Computed example of a mutant assay.
Amino acid sequence: MPKFTEQEKERVRESLLVKGKELFIQYGLAKTSIDDIILACGIGKGTFYKFFASKEELYYAILKNEEEVRELLIGKLLEESLSPKDLLTSFFTASFRYADENPFFQRVFQDGEHERLVRKLPKHLADELAMEDTAKGIQVVQALMHKGILPKQDPAIVVGIMKAVMLLRFHKDKIGEPLFDQVIEKMIDYVTDGMIKDTQE
């Protein structure tokens, strides 16, 4: 197996992330093989394993990259000078828009894709995925509490509420597309009112 310079390693890794993302979006985790990925990247199987132990670990790396972009966008939003109601509404609206415009995120939560990923990942990465998701959510909620936007309460419960609202995006077909946007708008309105209620009393 040839030795790579740091630049070559970076180029191969970037190719794996980009081509892997394209294939996962098109075919999903189960139907995308390592052979598909190495063919798209123009590399050998030995080279693939030099970077990732499995296609699931590549998928996980792509997912982390996508989440970092989302967190940057949300972080900028939280810095804006908005009323608590407007800030939370903007948070949910921006999160929904990001999911709508990101086909990889859409794929992650379709057809048991996320469950398949967690099941196939090594335990330490599956645990890391679960912990990081919750921990980052708690950090955001604690920051909102510190600013007085949210009342002091168990941040894990607030994170759970936020996740529940966001998961509605992936049930558009069950809610019914003609009503979906109106349902989401009302749901965000009701949830944000409930979340900030104690700060307004």
Score class of each variant (00 low, 15 high):
36 D>P: 01
37 I>L: 09
38 I>M: 04
38 I>G: 14
39 L>V: 09
39 L>T: 14
39 L>D: 13
42 G>S: 07
43 I>E: 11
45 K>E: 14
46 G>W: 02
51 F>G: 12
52 F>V: 08
53 A>E: 13
53 A>H: 03
53 A>G: 13
54 S>K: 01
58 L>Q: 06
58 L>C: 10
58 L>W: 00
59 Y>V: 07
59 Y>K: 00
61 A>R: 02
61 A>I: 03
62 I>S: 13
63 L>C: 08
65 N>D: 12
66 E>I: 13
67 E>T: 07
67 E>L: 06
68 E>Y: 10
68 E>I: 09
69 V>I: 14
70 R>N: 09
70 R>L: 15
71 E>R: 14
72 L>S: 08
73 L>H: 04
75 G>W: 15
75 G>D: 14
76 K>P: 00
76 K>M: 13
77 L>Y: 15
78 L>A: 07
78 L>W: 00
79 E>V: 12
81 S>G: 05
82 L>R: 11
82 L>A: 04
85 K>D: 10
88 L>P: 05
89 T>S: 02
90 S>Q: 13
90 S>L: 13
93 T>Y: 11
94 A>T: 15
94 A>P: 01
95 S>M: 11
98 Y>K: 10
99 A>Y: 12
99 A>G: 02
101 E>R: 11
105 F>N: 01
106 Q>W: 09
110 Q>R: 05
111 D>G: 00
114 H>L: 12
114 H>K: 11
117 L>W: 07
119 R>C: 01
120 K>T: 00
121 L>G: 11
121 L>V: 08
122 P>T: 08
122 P>R: 02
124 H>G: 02
125 L>D: 04
127 D>L: 10
128 E>V: 07
129 L>S: 14
129 L>F: 15
130 A>P: 06
130 A>E: 13
130 A>C: 07
131 M>I: 10
131 M>A: 08
134 T>W: 03
135 A>M: 13
135 A>W: 02
136 K>E: 13
138 I>H: 00
139 Q>I: 03
139 Q>S: 07
139 Q>N: 07
141 V>F: 00
144 L>D: 08
147 K>M: 07
149 I>T: 06
150 L>F: 03
152 K>G: 02
154 D>W: 01
156 A>N: 05
159 V>F: 01
160 G>T: 02
162 M>V: 06
162 M>Y: 06
